[in-house]
Design a protein around this nucleic acid. Structure first.
Lengths: 207, 207, 207, 207
DNA sequence: TATGAATGAGCGTTCATTCAT
DNA sequence: TATGAATGAACGCTCATTCAT
């Protein structure tokens, strides 16, 4: 039986405990990395015994999977916001750009970070989850880009794919830079990012 | 005493041994990642005993530090290429873009890969090395951008900083995407990357 | 304080609860062995919480001790059957042999199985219980062998002791063989066992 | 790679270490049972660190397998002795009976004991090994019983099978009795065992 | 009486590191 | 210089047992 579905007498408290663990784990993973953080430390951080964690998660792996899933949900809500905005996509996305930058440059909150990517290169399940999450995110983005109010909805599939990948690349890359240079500010980045993003959301020049 | 400075009877052979280890370790880290590769395997690959490695390196960590250090030295040659090209910088950089993309999307060749970045986020020495290398690379880039033949040489320092950071972000981000989606091709990426890069290398529109 | 003697408000219900646990535990031990069966599973089988079991038993070990204790009481009824039979002992025992074989080769029914014997070899209390039970069984057997209708009643104590031990050995040994070779049938065994048993119940030849 | 075949610089010393571990493990298993004995205790008993054991054995399971294999070899040599004896089988086996009894009643040496049988009921590999060992032993015994100098070589396969199983049962059963009653002596047992065994090695009476 | 949440010691195993030779 | 035998701390995980309610 999956621990996640294990019946607890008080589901509210159980959910709270789960969150405790996830928060603690995210914190530890961030500080020490997935391999560097031990269950003992996660337990200590979560304020419970190591053994008890296994009443809520089947394994350490299940914890990271949960973290990724949670992040996925969060990401969807961001796209939802974009979709709910009135006005043309270009404007909406450029206006919302600073949110995305904020998110990708908040090393604390963005837990699907380097370590998980690194883990993905070794752990098929984690890789699958990340790929799924990314694929869904790209689909959302594609929907936005081909929506009625988009300026580029008529272009080829391959070009669309390319735009999305480049957009995602630059955002993911920001995480790396922020990690290496914490002094880098959102404002600084936006100066050049906004024009570049505009280019990525508009028809390309012929020349 | 630091092993690196440990006195060896034959300094030439000692250096050769060190190289052996670094080459073997880089190979192993590539195939298995930093945590996945054991000292035993590195030793086997290097053709010496595990214990003997400790005559040349203080620890496994010292090895990865050395690898990164060595890699940094190589990196500058890339910018040299650009500098040697005739013509205006915009053209040169756009023409050379596919080389950069190639380099960042060749999972195999990019030794400073995920695991090392991840390691950097918690190893002071590695972080310092990467920051230094990155800073030097940014300086080279800055020199290119403000050179005689550049279209944007007259702009503000902060804007310049931003452009460079975004350029570096998107390139680094490509590595992450390629890792998660090996099926992503250089050609696909270039479709949107080229226009975006052009924007980043030209004066921005006023609006 | 010993849980067994712990005061319960309703001694009748307490006894019922104890039986519940013993039945459940015996079932679990059967299916999974002493080490293989966890308190959680026993509790689930008994229809109560794991913690509650400790209101009736001090430990898991105390449970197996109780099971064995209970089993011992049952065992005597077997010999009673023999004693109630008319006719000479040799005939009675040989006629009843297949019952004994059945019992020892029915892996399911024999609750005092391997795990418990194994447990006995390191648990003083269990060892004592098994020794007591075995001694009583041997005494019953001795009574049968020296009874009026026995053919060997006049022989030396040591010889009697030896006969009984060999008889008990072969019966116990059957359990081991059946465990390792479930395909072994009662009929096959009886072919050679009957003549051997006859020898053990009759005066020995001089040569 | 199987640890057993791992190359060690000094094979003599390596073999000695292996023996150390096997001896220590047999001792611990005997005192605490397979599950009760931890690697730490085995290591302490063997006079080496827990980790080092894994240079000689792949796992705890591999240790018990080795013990069983070693016991198998020992057993074969016993049969070999019987085969090498001149004279008719009945005499040889009866003369050698006390050796077998000794072996089965030496609780220390006979490590394929209760715990392994118990383990076999859960661990397929152990079960397979024990079954194999037993099958080979039975085949040896069968060869002896149908050999030229045997008194029963002409009897049916099923009867032969039965004889062997009963012989093996009584021997295995002795182990259980000795475990429960260490005061039981070989001499006492032999009084009744010898006639019974004689019966099992001769043609049965018609009645 | 009864629960199940919570504990913590212990499990088998790995591996960077040390050391006798 | 070079070996690989040996160490030991740490790992993820289990489970009998305790305890607040």
């Amino acid at each position: 039986m999956n621990s996640k579905n294990k019946k607890h007498l008080d589901p509210v408290q159980a959910q709270a405990r789960r969150e405790q663990v996830l928060t603690a784990a995210a914190d530890c993973f961030h500080r020490k990395g997935y391999h560097g953080a031990g269950m003992a430390e996660i337990a200590r951080t979560a304020g419970m015994s190591a053994g008890h964690i296994y009443n809520y998660f089947d394994s350490k792996e299940a914890i990271i999977e949960s973290i990724i899933e949670k992040d996925m949900e969060e990401m969807f809500s961001i796209f939802q916001e974009f979709e709910d905005q009135p006005g043309d996509i270009l404007t909406v996305l450029l206006d919302g750009l600073h949110h995305g930058v904020q998110r990708h440059m908040d090393t604390g909150a963005c837990v699907i970070d380097l370590d998980m990517m690194a883990e993905a290169s070794r752990n098929k399940k984690v890789a699958l989850l990340l790929r799924e999450a990314d694929t869904q995110a790209r689909n959302r983005m594609r929907d936005l880009l081909v929506s009625e109010s988009s300026l580029i909805k008529s272009h080829s599939e391959q070009e669309l794919e390319s735009r999305i990948n480049v957009i995602f690349s630059v955002m993911a890359g920001l995480l790396l830079r922020k990690m290496l240079f914490p002094e880098l500010t959102e404002e600084t980045v936006l100066i050049a990012l906004r024009p570049a993003m505009k280019t990525l959301l508009m028809p390309f020049d012929k020349n």
